[in-house]
């Protein structure tokens, strides 16, 4: 059984159709990359998969491990193992990263019928994952993303992913705006988490990311549809030709 099956997915924002029939299947252990021009619907797809209520599904189906994903509340999707790394992580002044992440970890454990994590165990987990993504420990005590630089926010997303250990991680432009050091540690974090049981959907603008994370498949999203799919070489092709060719095809 596939981990994720998207079938003819249509979605609208404020009455305007943005996704116009997406088909995509991701098996356990695979890394897929989606590339596409500005406004093509990449973030919309990620928000729909995570359950943002501002995005209305107007047609099609999404199955996660064979179950209807779209009927679940966002927190239920997370507890089932879907993780969305935000293109623009939200700043939440007044809520420390620690509280937030502990609440998240416990919610997921409870869902699995496990007991609450004890303080020592939590601290150990946090330390370990912070090292994995080379995140500064001081950031962890601060309010969620407040005053973080762009790179720190993205690192925090990967750090949270590493702590929550999802089955499916959707990373929406986690590489954008990162300098090379940050990009390296973000990529190392992702590579360290690669696992036959875990799948990734990387949304990116830049072929550069794929130098650090080798995808199994690359898809090109234009105007709400996947217009081409291929292997890693498709990214290089895009780098040279741009999206113009595909946009013509989509029109």
């Amino acid at each position: 059984m596939a981990m994720l099956e998207i079938k003819d997915l249509h979605a609208a924002v404020e009455g305007e159709e943005i996704l116009k029939g997406i088909n995509l299947t991701i098996n356990a252990g695979e890394v897929h990359a989606i590339m596409g021009p500005n406004g093509s619907g990449k973030s919309t797809l990620s928000k729909v998969l995570a359950g943002h209520e501002g995005y209305e599904v107007t047609g099609g189906q999404v199955l996660f491990e064979g179950r209807d994903l779209l009927e679940l509340a966002p927190e239920e999707r997370a507890r089932e193992g879907v993780f969305l790394g935000f293109q623009y992580p939200v700043e939440i002044p007044g809520v420390a990263n620690t509280y937030f992440l502990k609440a998240a970890v416990n919610a997921i454990r409870k869902h699995r019928g496990e007991s609450e994590i004890d303080a020592m165990e939590f601290l150990k987990l946090i330390r370990d994952r912070m090292k994995m993504v080379k995140m500064d420990e001081a950031l962890f005590k601060r309010p969620v993303n407040e005053g973080f630089s762009g790179g720190e926010k993205k690192r925090n997303e990967i750090f949270q992913m590493a702590v929550l250990e999802p089955k499916l991680a959707i990373l929406d432009e986690t590489d954008s705006g990162l300098d090379i050091d940050a990009l390296r540690s973000v990529s190392e974090g992702v590579n360290a988490l690669r696992d036959p049981e875990r799948s990734f959907l990387l949304i990116t603008h830049y072929q550069r990311l794929l130098n650090y994370i080798q995808p199994d498949f690359v898809h090109v999203l234009v105007k709400g549809q996947i217009v081409k799919s291929g292997g890693k070489e498709l990214a290089q092709e895009l780098e040279q030709s741009g999206y113009a060719l595909f946009e013509e095809n989509a029109a």
Binding site: L84, I92, A104, A107
Partner: peptide, 17 residues
């Protein structure tokens, strides 16, 4: 949405905020 997307329940997310 951000909090809920990490698994925190809706009421708890409202509480945290």
């Amino acid at each position: 949405f951000y909090l809920r997307s990490r698994g925190v329940g809706e009421n708890d997310a409202r509480g945290l905020l």
